[in-house]
Design a binder for these strands. Structure first.
Lengths: 352, 352
DNA sequence: CTGAAAGCGCTTACAG
DNA sequence: CTGAAAGCGCTTACAG
């Protein structure tokens, strides 16, 4: 069944069928009804490729989930509680306004080619990029291509530096610095001065910002940054396990620990509790993200809530807006975060 | 940049360019190299719509995540720990063999139209369906269309009943009945006879099977099925909360509770512990799925492990295989499950 | 081995 | 208001 068949059946030309499908105003109601009836009757749907080739928009965006240097094997990205909501949110936001979403995972440097390819093959009209890139050059290169893209968690200064101001790039971030400051100030107020950190991936903006805030707060309070209290977590549970174990067997423990995400905070809690170190009595812990599990662990994890749903929805909507309006100016959204005080923080013990 | 430009630049015809791109054997190495060089140099990528329209496969499958009667609002499907791994698994399995994945969410009955539309518009060559449908008629109708589809969690008997044996439908299930029997037998062995169940959604195959196994095991052991011990959970945490609270305030508690998924089991644990009822000392609990959180809650949840990754990978691979071979026969895979005994089961107390 | 040509199924100026 | 025709960018028999 093609438009020609519909035309014949309805006693009109292909042009008219096309006009009806595309809601042209200059079709009399009677003709329109006649054509529509045949379309309904035969359940006709126009061929997408033909429409696109003839000039219609493809109404499709790509979602590229970048996950380089994650663990291999069947688990891959699925472990991360953070990314799992991502895809659904993009799909919903896009579907709502009639867009389709092509999802890709990027596990290696050469997979990056998939992004520009998808654009050049005209599969997609825009792209959302999310994830931890080792080599941010790849993203830079893609942005320079000039296609509409939205990047979540990216350093805005890269835009200026690379003269991407007229690129139509959208950057959406959370207030990582401020959130970390708030969390750490809470620990300071409880009397803690030996505060450790489990860092995220330093190649990411959020990872860098959270660490920068850590140094900032400590300095503001006249506290020395001790290398032995800096655990390299890379946002990964496994690393947090290993690092915390090492910490426990070293000579001195901090009285509080800030983890750059909840996954690592929860891993730390488990190690401590297995080793008979009580949370929060012996050590206070704060995470970041507020993943669903955060409120379910015992004790419930104090953390910084990131509005992932809002951020991703905004990125998607702004992207589609840019596509439809051909916008070529950079835009940037930063979402506030919120410290949620649950049960993993206690005043510093004065008896030790 | 189009194939004509490449042809001109390379000093050949569009036909030859096309032959090079499509790896036709009858192109001399020298010509091929010449054309390839220009393609590289100009970063040319053929227009996908044009290729498809000219007869190439679209190499795209659709993933339809059906989530009817779930909660509304921003949370929607994201809550379910079960579906989050689903999408990534399909995308990976498809990407690995050069396929693209178009993801859709289906929240209402009329969204079902998206599935057949995607096929008829030639956007996709196959589809994976997963989720809880209220009205299985929709799936039946789609299967009848004859397009290659893979359904996860579906009653195989529906295939025969609807004469879908020559439809190329793929059904992938887990051994829900057997897994439930194994879990319940464990409770029986521990001496329990007052065993409750928090049911799943009865419109799903897995929900039905797990309940059927419950009735089966009880009858096998001469235990009466008591309506007051059947909690309607619908696979939803929220329902489990409410139902368990109601149960606690009724006159008699079971000594063991089987939940049709981990989400509900964990919700039940929380309610019990909040009310001072100890798990497993006062009540034993078993879940289903083995979501990541199952091993993290305290006490660690005993559950039945479902090989979601394997199931979904298989469904995707089998689907693509059917697409490429034009297979028109029904196929069916059932994956074994495994009871994992953690810390939420204890012998029935004899002192009460 | 290779080019000219038809065709894929649409959309949209163009002319009437 | 409407049809005939060109064109979108490819692929692939066809003929040589």
């Amino acid at each position: 069944m093609k438009s020609e068949d519909i035309a014949r059946l309805a006693g009109v030309s292909r042009s008219t069928v096309s006009r009806v499908i595309n809601n042209y105003p200059n079709v009399p109601e009677e003709t329109r009804a006649k054509v529509l009836k045949i379309i309904e009757e035969y359940n006709y749907e126009p061929n997408t490729s033909a429409r696109i080739l003839a000039g219609k928009s493809n109404n499709t965006i790509g979602l590229f989930v970048i996950s380089i240097s994650e663990n291999d094997g069947p688990s891959k990205i699925y472990q991360s509680a953070y990314y799992s909501t991502f895809i659904n949110t993009v799909v919903d936001a896009a579907n709502t306004v009639g867009y389709y979403v092509l999802v890709h995972t990027i596990y290696s440097g050469k997979d990056y080619a998939k992004i520009s390819q998808s654009f050049m093959q005209k599969r997609i009209s825009g792209g959302i990029l999310v994830g931890n890139e080792k080599d941010s050059d790849a993203i830079k290169k893609i942005a320079k291509l000039g296609y509409p893209i939205g990047i979540v968690d990216y350093d805005v200064r890269e835009i200026e530096k690379n003269k991407l101001n007229n690129s139509g790039v959208i950057v959406v971030n959370s207030a990582d610095f401020e959130g970390t400051v708030e969390a750490l100030n809470h620990l300071i107020k409880l009397g803690h001065r030996d505060i450790g950190i489990i860092t995220g991936r330093m190649g990411t903006y959020s990872g860098k910002e959270r660490y920068r805030a850590y140094e900032y707060v400590l300095k503001e309070n006249g506290i020395e940054v001790k290398p032995e209290f800096i655990l390299k977590g890379e946002f990964l549970k496994k690393n947090a396990y290993d690092e915390v174990k090492k910490l426990i067997h070293s000579k001195k423990l901090p009285t509080a620990l800030f983890a750059c995400n909840d996954d690592m905070a929860i891993a730390a809690m488990e190690v401590f509790m297995d080793e008979g170190i009580r949370v929060p009595e012996d050590i206070s812990i704060i995470g970041f993200d507020n993943i669903p599990m955060a409120s379910h662990v015992k004790p419930a994890l104090s953390t910084v809530k990131v509005p992932v749903y809002d951020m991703v929805t905004r990125a998607t909507e702004a992207l589609i807006n840019n596509i439809e309006h051909g916008t070529k100016t950079f835009s940037n959204f930063t979402y506030p975060v919120e410290f949620i005080n649950r049960d993993t923080c206690a005043p510093r013990r004065t008896d030790k």
